[in-house]
Design a binder for these strands. Structure first.
Lengths: 234, 234
DNA sequence: CGGTCGCCGTGACAAAAGTCATCGGCACGC
DNA sequence: GCGTGCCGATGACTTTTGTCACGGCGACCG
C-alpha cells in the first residue's frame, strides 16, 4: 500500500501543475487521489455531466472532444502523461464542457474538486501553475477557431502533415516520410471535417505530385510546396 | 488625485476577479493601475505583441478578435464593464493571442503583469476568481468551435437572432421585434462568415416567412419555427 | 450642391464542403 | 472458410460557402 502511494506521489511530481510542491505535500495529495484505469475507447466522462474533479494522466493518452447531434466529432485536444484534464470546470462550478475518452490503455489519477481547491488556497503557486497550463489550452482553442474560421480542409490537412513531418518525419531520397498515426475518420475529427474529405484531399495532394501515398505512409516530396499551401490561404 | 484613486478603487471593486479584496488592498491596486481612454475603433493591443499586463473595463466595451491574412475577422468575445481582458497571457508568459479594440468610448485600467502576479500570490482567492472567469471564457471558446465545426451560417444566424430576442426582444402583434445592434459586416465577424452571407440568409428567412425585415429591425413571426432551425442541424 | 464614404442587397459565378451509395480490402472470430 | 465489421477510395450529386462586381442609399463634409 505504502508503495502505491509513493508511486502516485512520483507521478504527481511529474505533472506540470504540481511541480514545485514538497514531498510531503505530494504524499498528502497522493493519499487523497484515486487511481483509475481505462481501456481504449472507454469514456472517462461526458460533456454535460456535473464536474466531480480533475484527472491527471499517469500513462496513456486522453482525447478531449465535442460531439454533434449528427454523430460528428471535433477533437479539442489529445493529452498524454504529465498533463491534466478538466482543471477548469473544477473552478467555475459548471459541468464538463466536453467529453473525454481514453485513446489507448490509460491510467489516471482522480483528484476531487474539494481537495484541489483546498490545495490551491494553501499553495498559491499551484494556482499560478494551473493558470499557465490553462493559458496553453486557451491558445490551442483559439488556434482551432482560427483554422476553422479562416481556412479550408485542404489547408488544415497540409498543416497536419507538416506538423507530423516536423515531429516524426524521416528523411528519404524522395522527401520526408511520415506515417499517419490515426484513421482517416479520426484525422477528420481532429481537423474538423468528415472522412471522405480527408481521403479526397489526400488523393488530390498525390495527383498534384506533392506527396506519394502508400497505405498509411505518406512521402512528402516537396516540403516547400506544401508550406506554400498554407500561405496561399488568406 | 486622491479622488481619482478612490474612483479607481471603486471600479476595481466591481470587477469580478477583484471582488472580495479589502478596501486597503483595492486602494493599493488602484494606486498601481494606470487609467487609459480609448475611442471607438481604437486598438488596445494586437495579436502577437508581448503581453505587458491586463486591462480592466471601467466603461465601454471591448472587442476581442482574430484576423486573417485576407482581412476577415472572427470575434471571440465582446466584454463590458466589470470584466477584464488578457488575464491569461499574463501568466503563461506568451504574447497576446488575439487583438482587442474598443467598440465605443471606453475607459480601462491597466494592471502590469508584475503587480498582478504579486497580488495572486498574496491573495490566493484572487487566483481562484481568475480561474473562474477564465473557465467562462473557455466555455465560450468551446461553444464557438462547436458552432463553426457543426453548423451552417443559417443556423448560426438563427441562433444569433434568438439570443437577441431573448435578451432584448419586444413582443408585438406580429411576433417578437428585435433591433440588429451591429452592421451586417460586424455580425458576419461574430458568427464567422462574410457580409454577403448574412445579408442573403436574412433575406431568405424573410422570403420563407419566418421574419420581416425593415431596416435594422427584425420581427420574428414564429419563434418556434426559428428554434426548429437549430434542432434541424445535426 | 456635389463628392466621397460606408453600408446594404443582389446577381452571377466558382469553389469547397458535405451526403449518399457503392466497392474492395483486411482482420478477427466462430 | 465465411460472415461481420471497420476502414479506405471514389463517383455522383446537392448544398453551402465564398468571391467579384455592381448599383443604390444615406450621412457627412467641403
Amino acid at each position: 500500500m505504502a508503495e502505491i502511494r509513493v508511486d502516485h506521489a512520483q507521478t504527481l511530481a511529474k505533472v506540470q501543475i504540481f511541480s514545485g510542491l514538497t514531498e510531503s505535500e505530494l504524499a498528502f495529495l497522493a493519499q487523497r487521489s484515486v487511481p483509475r484505469r481505462f481501456s481504449p475507447g472507454e469514456t472517462v466522462f461526458s460533456e454535460g455531466e456535473p464536474c466531480a474533479g480533475l484527472y491527471v494522466v499517469e500513462s496513456g493518452h486522453l482525447r478531449i472532444f465535442k460531439s454533434s447531434a449528427g454523430g460528428r466529432e471535433q477533437v479539442l485536444s489529445i493529452d498524454g502523461p504529465g498533463s491534466s484534464v478538466a482543471e477548469l470546470p473544477v473552478f467555475d462550478g459548471g459541468n464538463y464542457p466536453a467529453s473525454v475518452t481514453a485513446v489507448d490503455d490509460a491510467t489516471l489519477l482522480f483528484v476531487s474538486k474539494q481537495d484541489f481547491q483546498a490545495l490551491c488556497l494553501a499553495h498559491p503557486q499551484v494556482a499560478l501553475k494551473v493558470l499557465r497550463v490553462v493559458g496553453a489550452r486557451l491558445r490551442r482553442l483559439v488556434g482551432i477557431i482560427e483554422e476553422l474560421s479562416f481556412t479550408t480542409v485542404r489547408h488544415r490537412l497540409a498543416s497536419f502533415l507538416l506538423r507530423l513531418a516536423r515531429t516524426e518525419g524521416k528523411r528519404t531520397a524522395d522527401g520526408v516520410e511520415v506515417t499517419l498515426p490515426v484513421s482517416n475518420q479520426e484525422l477528420a475529427s481532429q481537423i474538423g471535417t468528415v472522412r471522405e474529405l480527408v481521403s479526397r484531399n489526400l488523393s488530390r495532394f498525390q495527383s498534384e505530385g506533392l506527396v506519394s501515398i502508400d497505405g498509411r505512409s505518406v512521402i512528402i516530396h516537396d516540403l516547400k510546396a506544401l508550406e506554400a499551401e498554407l500561405r496561399s490561404a488568406e
